[in-house]
Design a protein around this nucleic acid. Structure first.
Lengths: 196, 196
DNA sequence: GCGTTCCGTTGACGCTGTCATCTGAACAGA
DNA sequence: TCTGTTCAGATGACAGCGTCAACGGAACGC
């Protein structure tokens, strides 16, 4: 006799994978809804339908679980970048805007997840997932500013977007203080780059 | 009979202020040395020479204590900016470089403190201290790009520096991946601004 | 059918932030 | 000088946390 999961009869291996999936989803959900301090292993277990000790069968500790959540988020972003770069119908400018918009969206709609993704120091798992989006990103920039300058401008753009999100999240980048906003700053910067 | 502090006889009011000072220094020191998880109220109290409950006579809770630490750090940065802006001997470019270097120094030498300073959402105390450096910063930029564009370029520069520090701290901005570094990116950006 | 593997549960431990309570010294006023 | 008040600080207690050791049981290979 095998175990049941969502009504389906599955093997032990599949059951363990399903539990791991549930734990990741539970942790990500709690992070989104209540911030880092809402993510307790007890609550993660409860939401995933298991006990407080179950996570230790899939992750070495709480930090390892959170690292996996961050790595998955980076992977989604990388998937989007790869997909965008491969689309033959969109122009290089549109591809670049789409990639930056993807990062901005995470920062605004899932600020706690975004912070987790940039927590220092990032583990190998996270760094590898984050690096996967670099290829398409630099390639698109190469079409715009030339291959030899693509890395410099790519790092500048990425850092700027990251900084804008951070200042926005902490309440330091407000329209009444700076007479500008995130989109205006990015337009200014991309315009400066386009002039090259 | 009055209390003694560092060998000097002082009033009760002075004693309380000295304790508050010690608590802030202890918290900042623990944060620098061991990161956020090293800052426990018990350890803060011990290092300040008081008990674990003493902080509650000066701060409403642990978060309030950390907020005060962050506000003091912002105040030091603002002091430096004001001082730099008032110096008649340095050029506008040197003033700008000095201000940016001050931010970069905190991010590199006290990364945990830097993260705390940008923790969301920033309280009023922090936002006020952070805003105090905005005046001199925008004024210097006004000398370089014109008053009407100072805010836009100021926000862009600040966001970029913030992003560079964040990516550097999380290990994402490395020379072997991007064929560039923080100083090169900032040179590129300030060069682009200078061309206006 | 049997022994092994391994996912999940449970009790326990130390550590944390926080609160209620208590103590004692510095103060204001007579 | 005596007295009552104020308040910084100490301490016991509590719930919640991450983590681990021990245990149970179902799925597996043979």
């Amino acid at each position: 006799m095998s175990t049941r999961y969502h009504g389906a009869v599955i093997s032990r291996l599949e059951s363990a994978a399903a539990t791991r999936r549930s734990l990741l989803d539970a942790a990500a959900g709690l992070l989104d809804e209540g911030g880092p301090e809402a993510v307790t292993l007890r609550e993660v277990g409860a939401r995933a339908g298991v006990s407080r000790g179950a996570p230790y069968r899939h992750f070495v500790d709480k930090g390892d679980l959170l690292t996996a959540v961050a790595a998955e988020a980076w992977d989604r972003l990388a998937d989007r970048a790869v997909e965008l770069a491969a689309d033959p119908l969109t122009s290089a400018e549109e591809k670049l805007r789409g990639m930056l918009a993807g990062i901005l969206a995470v920062g605004r709609e899932q600020p706690h997840l975004y912070r987790l993704m940039h927590q220092a120091p990032a583990g190998d798992e996270v760094l590898r997932a984050a690096s996967r989006s670099q290829g398409p990103f630099v390639a698109v920039l190469g079409d715009l500013v030339g291959k030899d300058q693509a890395y410099r401008y790519g790092a500048l753009l990425l850092a700027s977007v990251h900084g804008i999100i951070g200042m926005e999240a902490s309440g330091q980048l407000t329209a009444d203080k700076w007479h500008t906003d995130a989109d205006d700053i990015l337009t200014l910067l991309t315009g400066m780059i386009g002039d090259r």
